[in-house]
């Protein structure tokens, strides 16, 4: 049986509430709710201050300035300027929180080709962690290792360890099916099942054994609302999911992943096939989801990484080159390679 934990603040709200309000108002209430919370030391105040006064268009235009240095004028937006800025970030220092996902000495092979070399990193709980790096550097391989999606590839082999809440994902007693229920995934190419919108979101719940119609209805509405899709589809829940637009399909896939109440959501270039408007919707969504979920996102879009993530890991040629707070990576990278990459000198 699925249990819908009450750890989510909004779980207690009437499910219909968000449905009636347009998404922007939804975001405002989300912010109010979020701001009312006590802050932890590491909670990066990041875009809030900036975000509050700006509308989406400006937001999209003003990208990398959205670093935590929210006090800086938003018009200073090019990378070179950002990189020459020496002002140290307020949020330096080690993560004061325990890692949700902990990766150590992780290697990965496709047959005899070694594509990941000794990866070590700790992914914090309820934060957005971005993975960036040139094409073919192993980002997808890495993210798919976390929920063992690579298991279905013949001849693929992993060594080293990945733990979630201290439990070894690749351990002998690990249950892949259970793991994948805890770790949701959204793919680059949206992959709705050729079923109705309702059945898509219900899929994970049903395989978890949920049969109660009222319960299903409720969770489906809440998941679709969370994925900012509810008001667009509430009148045609039983229409085919394939009739939705690309951006809607991707949000449906996010809703489908959220419905089973995962702790971690992995996203492999979730917005790469979408137009800017759909992309900004997804980004907004990711930003809101991080209060409840640990999110790992692969992206080729530097601005996107800067906008949505708290921490960023830079990969190259199968190695983790640098991993730090996002603003550090973009404004004050320690490694020359990172600097070259984020300033667009290669990749």
């Amino acid at each position: 049986m699925m249990t819908i934990e009450m750890r989510r603040r909004d779980a207690a709200e009437p499910a219909g509430e968000d449905a009636s309000v347009p998404p922007r108002a939804g975001r405002a209430s989300f912010r109010a709710e979020r701001d009312a919370l006590p802050r932890t030391g590491v909670d990066v105040p990041f875009p809030d201050a900036v975000r509050r006064e700006r509308d989406d268009a400006e937001w999209n235009a003003a990208v990398p300035a959205a670093g935590p240095a929210a006090s800086s004028p938003p018009q200073n937006t090019n990378h070179a300027q950002l990189l020459t800025r020496t002002q140290p970030s307020a949020q330096e220092g080690p993560m004061s929180q325990e890692a949700k996902i902990s990766v150590s000495n992780f290697d990965f092979y496709y047959g005899t080709a070694k594509v990941l070399h000794g990866i070590n990193l700790d992914i914090p709980d309820r934060k957005v962690t971005a993975l960036i790096g040139p094409s073919g550097c192993g980002k997808s391989t890495f993210i798919r290792s976390i929920n063992r999606m690579n298991d279905i590839i013949p001849d693929a082999r992993a060594s080293g360890s990945i733990t979630i809440d201290g439990q070894d994902v690749y351990g002998g007693d690990a249950d892949v099916v259970e793991l994948r229920r805890r770790v949701g995934m959204v793919f680059q190419k949206s992959n709705p099942f050729p079923k109705s919108i309702y059945d898509n979101v219900a899929y994970g719940l049903r395989i978890g054994g949920m049969r109660n119609k009222r319960q299903l209805d409720e969770i489906i509405e809440r998941s679709l609302t969370r994925a900012a899709l509810w008001h667009e589809v509430k009148d045609r829940l039983h229409a085919s999911a394939l009739a939705l637009s690309g951006g809607q399909q991707q949000r449906l896939c996010i809703a489908r992943a959220l419905a089973v109440d995962p702790e971690i959501v992995l996203m492999d270039e979730p917005a790469s096939a979408l137009d800017p408007i759909a992309t900004s919707k997804i980004e907004e969504l990711i930003y809101e989801l991080k209060d409840n979920y640990t999110i790992v996102i692969v992206t080729h879009n530097m601005q996107q990484a800067a906008r949505v993530s708290d921490r960023t890991a830079f990969f190259m040629l199968g190695r983790l080159i640098e991993y730090a707070e996002t603003n550090e990576i973009f404004m004050n990278p320690k490694e020359k390679m990172t600097e070259d990459y984020v300033t667009g000198r290669f990749g």
């Binding site: 994948r180 793919f187 992959n191 709705p192 395989i207 896939c253 089973v260």
Partner: peptide, 12 residues
């Protein structure tokens, strides 16, 4: 992608 989608949701 459909197979991966189903497996990623915890389907056997």
């Amino acid at each position: 992608g459909l197979r991966e989608g189903a497996l990623a949701l915890g389907a056997t």
